[in-house]
Design a protein around this nucleic acid. Sequence first.
DNA 1: GTGAAAGCGCTAACAA
DNA 2: TTGTTAGCGCTTTCAC
Lengths: 332, 332
Amino acid sequence: MSYTIKDVAKKANVSVATVSRILNNLPGYSEKTKEKVLRVIAEMGYQPNAIARGLINKKTKTLGVLLPAVSDTFASVVLSGIEDMAHDLDYSVMVCNTDKDGIRTMKYLQALREKQVDGIIFISEFFKDEYYNAITAMKLPIVLVSTKSPYDIPFIKVDDEKAVFDGVTYLLDRGHRSIGMIAGTKGDTIATLPRIEGYKKALKEQNIVFETKKVVYGDFGFDSGIAAAEELLEQNKDLTAIFCSSDEMAAGALSYLYRMSIRVPDEISLIGYDNTKVAEMAIPPLTTVGQPLYEMGKNSVRMLLELEEGKTESMIMPHKIAERETVKSIRK
Amino acid sequence: MSYTIKDVAKKANVSVATVSRILNNLPGYSEKTKEKVLRVIAEMGYQPNAIARGLINKKTKTLGVLLPAVSDTFASVVLSGIEDMAHDLDYSVMVCNTDKDGIRTMKYLQALREKQVDGIIFISEFFKDEYYNAITAMKLPIVLVSTKSPYDIPFIKVDDEKAVFDGVTYLLDRGHRSIGMIAGTKGDTIATLPRIEGYKKALKEQNIVFETKKVVYGDFGFDSGIAAAEELLEQNKDLTAIFCSSDEMAAGALSYLYRMSIRVPDEISLIGYDNTKVAEMAIPPLTTVGQPLYEMGKNSVRMLLELEEGKTESMIMPHKIAERETVKSIRK
DNA sequence: GTGAAAGCGCTAACAA
DNA sequence: TTGTTAGCGCTTTCAC
C-alpha cells in the first residue's frame, strides 16, 4: 500500500487539510509550510489517489470513447486526435470497441457510467435510440464524431453531400462523363444516402443523367471495395472513373483493377474518401476527398468539455481534395 | 445526481449492507429480500458507483495501455486484442499514446497510478530504466508486448531472430542469392539487431557472405521504406529480393519500385514483417512474416491478470509466413 | 437473515 | 495560516 495524504500530513506535522490545499493550489498556507510539505511529498514519493478524489468531486478526468473498431484506420486517427487533446487537458481516455454491436455498446455505456466518466465521444456509428435513452438517463455530456442523430446532440462531421459533390465535380471537370460510385452500406442514412445525393447533384449540374446501375454498395472495407469494383465494371463497360466512399474501398478497387490489368489512372480514374494513411500508401497514391480526422478528434474533446458549460453547437468541418495520382484528365 | 445505494436501501426498507450483499452476490439474505431489492434497483435504474467501490477494494477493473501511437496499424491490432479480452473479463482500458516520448510516457505512468489502474500493458517500445523504476515504485503488474527488458518483467513477443531467419530462408529457398534488408531503427536492440542477426544467420547457413551495404535502416514507417529502398537499390545493382522489417516499410519499398517501374515480384521480390492489414491491401498483396498481433494483445491481458496471482512467465508467440504475391522463385 | 457503524483517501466547510 | 470534521458511495466487520 502506498502512502496516503494522512501519512504526508503526519510526517510534515501539518493537517491533511493543509496538504490538500497545497496539492490543489488553494490559498491558505505559508510559503514555509508549502515548501516543507512539498519536500515531504517528494521524499515519500507520495501520489494522490484520484479515485478518492473522484468520489468527492464527482469528476474523474476521464472520457469514454466508443468506436466501431480501434484497428480501423479511420477511427484510429480520430482516436489519436482525441487522445492528444485529452492528454493536453489532463484527461484520460477509455476506449470501447463496440464492434458495431448494439448489445456490446449498451454494456459499455453502462460500464462507463459506473466508472463515472465525465463525458462520452461516439465515433462514426449509427446512433440508436436506445443509446440516446441510456445516455440521457445518465445525464452525461456526449458528442458525436462523423455521425449525427435526430436528437439535440452536438456532432462534428464534414458535409458529406458537399464533399462528394466536390469530389465528383473534380472528376467531371477533368472530362469524365461516365462515373461510377462505390457507396457505403446500403440504407445508411448518415454516410451513404447523403453521399449518393452529392453524387447525383454533381451529375445533374452538368446535365448527366443518373443511372442506378452506376452505384454499387459496399461496407467501407477493403474487401467490399474489391467486390464492388468488379460489379461496377461488369455492369458498366464505359466507365472512366469511380468515386469511392472510403479510402479502403478505393484500395480494394485498386487491387481489383490491378488484378484485371486495368491501369489506374490511364484506363480508369479513382477517387477515394477520408484521406487516411491508406490513400498515401496506395499504388498509385490515391487522390481522395480528405476529412480532417485528427482535428475532428481534437475538437470533439474540446467540445465535450465545453458542453459542461452549457454550450451545444455542432461543427461542420471543411473537407479538401488531396490530389495524388489516381485521376487523369481526359479530352473533352 | 444519480441514486445511491442508500436510496435503494431506503426504498426497499432494508439496510445498505443488505443491498451491497445482493449486489455482490454474497450470502446473507432471503430470496424474498433479494427479489424485492432487485426490483427496486430496476425501478430506480440504480447503478453502483465504481469509484466508491474502487476506493474500498483497491481495484478499479481498468488497465492502462501504453503504445507509441494508436493510429499505428501494428499497435492498433494489438490494442484491439487487448480491448476484446479486457471486455470479456469486465475490465476497461485506458489508452496512452506515448508518442515515443519519454516525458510523456512518465506523465502517463503517473496518471495511471493516480487513477489506480490494476495493471499496465506496454507495447512495442523501448522500455527505459526510468519506466522500470517508476513502475516498480508503484508496484503495479505490467507486461510487455512485442518488446522486452533486462528486468524480470514478463513479455510477449515472437522470436524475431528466428522469424527473420525463416523469412530470409524462404527467399533463399526460392533461389534468391542477393537479398537486401530494410532493417528497423539503427541501434534498436529489440526489433532491429536480433532481426539483422537472423538475416545474417540465414545467409550464413547457405554460405552466402554477408555484406554491410545490403542492409539499410529505416524507422518502421512507410516513408522510411521508400528512402531505404532507394538507397538499397543504388548500392546494390544485383538485388533480386528485399526483406523488410515491417509491412509499412515494405509498402514504402513497393511504392518506390512502382515509381521506378521495377516490377514486383518479376524483377524484385519483397517480403514484409507483421502481417498487418497493409500487407493484404498492398499491390501486389504482400508476402510477409506474420506475427499473431491480435492474439498477443489478448494474451497480454490474460497474463497481466494472472500476474496478480504470482505467475510470471513470458511467452514466445509463433510467427508464420503469409504467402501472397510479392515473392517469385528464380532459376537456381 | 439483517443492520449499525467504521472507514477507504480525499475535499471542503467551518472554526480557531 | 491552520486544523477539525463531516461526508463522497460503497464494503465489511461485528452484533443481534
